[in-house]
Design a protein around this nucleic acid. Structure first.
Lengths: 186, 186
DNA sequence: CGCGTTAGTTAGAAGGTATAACGAGGAGAA
DNA sequence: TTCTCCTCGTTATACCTTCTAACTAACGCG
């Protein structure tokens, strides 16, 4: 990789870093290429050398978010976590930057279709979950239920729908996953 | 109510109707006062007589959405539906216009805080669910779990995350709610 | 050393929210 | 009935956004 490409990657990373800061404070809707350019001390159109348009930047961010989540889940599993531990790891990851979680699992951007490689990373997460969800006969089913239950609590928590409701989200997630592990009927 | 106010309400309703059409096709992010004005054959600024800004329009839409959901849930309950029936009614309501459900339970608009009356309607929904979730001792808990489970499946379904995954969302919701009704441990 | 790619610039189109200032007309009061 | 005032819709404008086009400067590569 020559110096040209290296510089290019460096700038792309810097753009994404600023983008994450904007998303963390005001959500993806407020993401502005112009504002990022201003922060970086360049003119607006300069960024179009690095990202064809706003969607391509968001796609890159989504890919990175999936990658980060997959790594976190994989690390927890390799560290010996069971389903409850996995759920905790996912929740911790989400709480670090709620908008990052919502970028993946929140309201989809209209007209946006995830490229194949992001769905591949998504499958990677699911694979780990299913692996942790044994016994094999019902692992896929249990993995699916794990996913919907954790997401059910987590997305409502992140969206602030538990506000003033005397709910302990961490305990709720744990209880839901434990109930999943101990139940007899599907 | 004089003719002035009546006309005012009429125009507000017309604006909201166009707004729903836009949201249904392109999501709330693409909601444009300007485009609505064009559709109605008036200039852009004319609409600011009826809605102080874009946020106020969205607030009105959210209120209407909550109202509609509460009515649907209430109607199902009065029609003799149990928890499974209620879940089905909620899902049906959501599928009629996915963006309407996501407007309420999807990624929150940054900086937006729901006014008290919308949370009151939201409580109304919860009250019906808890009523249907008896016995009283664990009704609140079961109502909460009902909510998180149904939302978990529904939001993933609406966001298209089950695409190509061989999942029957309707059966999944039913199974989750039934498991909730038949389980012994919390 | 020079050629060619690449980065960054300014200008500008198209479209968005929102405010200000102005003219026209209907509702309601005298 | 007439007069007054409020409300509505208009245009003009400021400022924001994404994104394209055309040009210049500079840097890496052969």
């Amino acid at each position: 990789m020559g110096p040209r490409e290296r510089y290019r990657e460096q700038v792309r990373d810097e753009v994404k870093q600023h983008a994450w800061e904007q998303i963390a404070t005001a959500g993806v809707a407020a993401l502005s290429l112009n504002a990022i350019a201003k922060q970086m001390g360049v003119s607006g159109p300069a960024l179009y050398r690095y990202f064809a348009n706003r969607d391509e930047l968001i796609t890159a961010l989504i890919r990175d978010a999936y990658r980060s989540l997959a790594d976190a889940v994989r690390a927890a599993y390799d560290g010996g976590a069971d389903l409850v531990g996995l759920a905790g790891a996912i929740r911790e990851w989400a709480l670090v930057d709620p908008h990052r979680y919502l970028l993946i699992y929140g309201t989809p951007v209209p007209g946006y279709h995830a490229p194949a490689d992001t769905t591949a990373i998504s499958d990677e997460v699911m694979t780990v979950i299913v692996e942790a969800a044994g016994p094999p006969a019902t692992a896929v089913r249990r993995g699916l239920l794990f996913w919907t239950r954790v997401h059910g609590v987590l997305s409502l928590e992140l969206a602030g729908h538990f506000q003033g409701m005397d709910v302990d989200p961490a305990a709720l997630v744990t209880a839901e996953v434990e109930a999943l592990a101990n139940r007899t009927r599907q």
